[in-house]
Write a protein that binds this DNA or RNA. Structure first.
Length: 599
DNA sequence: TTTAGGG
DNA sequence: CCCTAAA
């Protein structure tokens, strides 16, 4: 049985979801006092039961805090976790770790491994539940109403609900109909562990009834609850047939949004899922009045997600900034809003589908926003019309910069779950870059680099991280030039790949020999090979004539070029016989002679 | 999607 | 390196 965790924060009886869930919609607030959580597990049948000691301990372990800013003290006697973050500079607890928590121990150890484990271990049911959970808790997923999702089955979930309910309010038979608003409020608090300011009696009663019965199916008109069951006087609820017990949990956790303009106090009015679900399915009765309506209005107002592109760009910028080399590019300095300081922290966690997601918290526009980021990965080919998107941008503004600026300006960011590929693949180039950089020189013999009239910084392409430049196009558009100088080892790999798989099998070579170089496409390989060919044939005929035109751009050792030429001749003579086999004749011998002779 | 070739 | 036919 798998377990998913959710968190609902309560601070002194009030919601503090802004801090606790790291919602992108919430402005960061300082937590100065310890926050107490109660862990509860959601049973498959919808009951909430206190977490066991082991579960508490487990959650504590999962919430381990790297920064030392949070102190998590378990009270194993009754499923309580106490958080305190004294000294935290951000006020945003590291609850991001809750994303994708499962019983996998090494959530943050080996990304690939745990990815697999998660993939395997999360059953579909728990997964769909987890999606809504993590979507809210982690502020990563869609905030859409998962009303079409179902829960049930056997998956159990652990929640941290910040309730210290006065259960005495809930003893015995409860007749909600007889209660005053105030009493209803108390009962509400006892039931949900939080306060409400909603004054609509019917609303309160329904919500409480739902809470106490763990069911959405409370569309009765009288509310008498006994033994966690609704005593129905009139079962007028065929309306209940329309909806299953939907993902109450997921929404309980975090179906909230504090819009940038929102007042934090309003957050208290946020409905729990059950509430919302209920309302959604009963809106026709028109019993929900202004208060609720207003809330719904707010809830419906959503901000747009940042595009993948945005996230990638941001990540690239950040990787520049945070790289140890600290190449102080004027471009990155021009970023303004995305200053290095805005980077608060980052971490790797698992998304609902078991993939590893790198997240970090950025204070964009003054809000604590967790932005999933992918370090220099491009999952597919570059967007073709990317240039047109940046048309507006001024001449010397870096494409990424302008993108970020525009995005920020429009306040259009909502995180989007990002899947990263194997982390090793992403990181490797950087490490390899370190190794290769020693001999790194522009290796493009026939390169026409200079003719673009892009000033010096283009020539500094020796530094791979600075190679993202935009080049004005003839038509006035902006073309992105992703120049990454070929290193010697890359060239060798390429030559090797060609000799092994044959020229033309670029995808094969890319896949097999260049698996770790995510930034070299098969087309790149082909182009490079073409250049190598040109170079080799230009050079070999007479060795001395080739008094290097420019030493900087001709780093390819002669032996390699020779080998290129041989390979080229080989390919020409015995290409993988397409149709009828041709007379091979003497070619084989000559090849062997050359091979032995030159190498 | 991949290859090949032009720009 | 980009773009685009063509396969």
């Amino acid at each position: 049985m798998e377990t998913e965790f959710g968190v609902e924060g309560s601070h002194e009886g009030k919601f503090v979801e802004g801090e606790l869930s790291s919602s992108p919609f919430s402005s960061p607030k300082q937590i100065t006092n310890p926050v107490v959580y109660k862990l509860v597990r959601l049973e498959g049948d919808g009951r909430l039961v206190p977490a066991t000691d082991d579960e508490v301990m487990e959650v504590q372990g999962l919430l381990r805090d790297d920064t030392g800013e949070m102190h998590i003290v378990p009270d194993t006697s009754n499923g309580i976790l106490c958080f305190s973050n004294e000294g935290s500079s951000t006020g945003v607890p590291q609850l991001e770790r809750l994303e994708g928590l499962s019983r996998t121990e090494n959530t943050d150890v080996d990304p690939e491994k745990s990815s697999v484990q998660l993939e395997e271990s999360v059953p579909s049911l728990a997964q769909s539940l987890g999606e809504s959970l993590m979507g809210h808790v982690g502020s990563l997923g869609e905030c859409s109403n998962p009303s079409d999702k179902q829960i049930g089955g056997s998956s159990s979930s652990i929640f941290i609900s910040g309730s210290k309910p006065d259960f005495s309010k809930l003893q015995g038979r409860i007749c909600l109909d007889n209660l005053s608003i105030k009493e209803l409020h108390e009962t509400f608090r006892a039931t949900f562990g939080r306060e409400t300011t909603v004054k609509d009696k019917l609303w309160l009663k329904r919500r409480i009834a739902m809470g106490l019965t763990n069911s959405c199916d409370v569309s009765t008109t009288t509310f008498v609850i006994e033994d966690n069951k609704l005593v129905k006087n009139e079962s007028s609820d065929n309306a209940g047939d329309g909806y299953v017990k939907d993902s109450v949990i997921g929404d309980i956790i975090g179906d909230h949004e504090s819009l940038p303009t929102g007042h934090s106090s309003q957050l208290e009015d946020r409905q729990t899922v059950a509430e919302k679900k209920f309302r959604d399915h009963n809106s026709e009765d028109g019993n929900f009045i202004s208060d609720e309506h207003a809330m719904e209005q707010r809830a419906n107002k959503r901000v747009r997600k940042p595009t993948r592109r945005y996230i990638e760009e941001l990540s690239e910028l950040e990787s520049k900034v945070s790289s140890t080399k600290l190449i102080t590019s004027p471009k990155s300095l021009g970023l303004g809003q995305v200053s290095p300081q805005s980077h608060l922290r980052s971490g790797i966690s698992a998304s609902s589908d078991g993939r590893i997601v790198v997240t970090r918290v950025d204070s964009l526009g003054g809000f604590g926003i967790k932005v999933p980021c992918v370090y220099r990965v491009r999952r597919s080919r570059p967007r073709k019309n990317y240039a047109t998107l940046l048309k507006i941008n001024s001449g010397d503004m870096d494409a990424a910069t302008s993108m970020v600026k525009k995005t920020l300006g429009a306040q259009t960011f909502v995180p989007e779950v990002m899947m990263a590929r194997s982390a090793s693949e992403q990181l490797q180039p950087q490490f390899l870059g370190e190794v290769d950089r020693e001999k790194q020189l522009p290796a493009v013999t026939g390169s026409r680099l200079g003719h673009n009239a892009v000033p010096t910084h283009l020539d500094s392409s020796i530094y791979p991280d600075k190679n993202v430049v935009s080049v004005p196009t003839l038509k006035g558009g902006i073309r992105r030039k992703h120049h990454r100088a070929w290193t010697l080892s890359e060239v060798v790999k390429l030559v090797d790949g060609v000799s092994r798989y044959g020229a033309g099998r670029w995808s094969e070579i890319k896949r097999l020999a260049f698996a770790s170089y995510s930034y070299r496409t098969s087309v790149d390989l082909k182009d490079k090979w073409r250049n190598l060919l040109k170079a080799s044939f230009a050079q070999t005929p007479d060795k001395v004539t080739n008094t290097r035109k420019n030493a900087a751009s001709m780093p390819i050792p002669a032996p390699i070029l020779l080998r290129v030429r041989e390979l080229a001749e080989m390919q020409v003579q015995d290409p993988p016989n397409h149709g009828s086999s041709k007379v091979l004749g003497t070619t084989g011998n000559s090849v062997n002679e050359r091979q032995s002779g030159y190498l």
